[in-house]
Amino acid sequence: MKRPVVIPAALLFAVVLILAMVDLAPPALDLRPLVAANLASSGVAHPVTAVLLNYRAYDTLLEIGVLLLALVAILAVSESVPTTSSTSATSSDLLLPMLGRIAAPVMVVVAVYLLSAGTSAPGGAFQAGAVLAAAAVLLHLTGLLPGWRQPGVSLRWGLAGGFLLFVGVGAILLLVEGDLLRYPPDHAGVLIFLIESGLTLSLGLILAGLFLFLSHDKGDVG
């Protein structure tokens, strides 16, 4: 019943939007020179990382908050019925565990590389964290890592730790430098790397958690 309204409206909107976009004049303001000009004092050499963790680091801070929040929300939604450890059905297969054993360490190495590369080339905490998470998921799928139930204390601190570190650095900089997340140019690189390392670990845990908490919750209630 909604169909006859939504579809024509959507098409009309798309056409108008595309026509308007094609017609659009160049913007009055260009941030690229600004980004480039301040790169030297930003502490990193890669412009995207500079935007993410320095110029607009506050966005990133809140975004990690969103991610952590989503994880907490998932935990709040899922039933905490202690199911017997989900021994993966794939254990009969010998090849997959082998793959996991080999691939997981490799992926950790890749993650560390991505993290360190992020300062000067594409890559960074997100990508590294995602690779870490992928390693954990792989281990789970190969039956080496059981699905997570309600997280224990150390896991919870690990999940929240990166974010707390980020907030903490921001707060200290606020107290010392007078502005939230204003890095002193001399120490910017170190501080950003510190934050990124913490984030990589926590992001890896959180992203893995998104999968593993859900995966555990097969929904067997009653």
Binding site: V48, T49, L114, P122, G123, G124, F126, A130, A134, L207
Partner: peptide, 12 residues
């Protein structure tokens, strides 16, 4: 950067 993230997060 986005390509990496998309591959890992978006698609993966």
């Amino acid at each position: 950067d986005i390509a990496l993230a998309e591959a890992a997060i978006g698609a993966g």
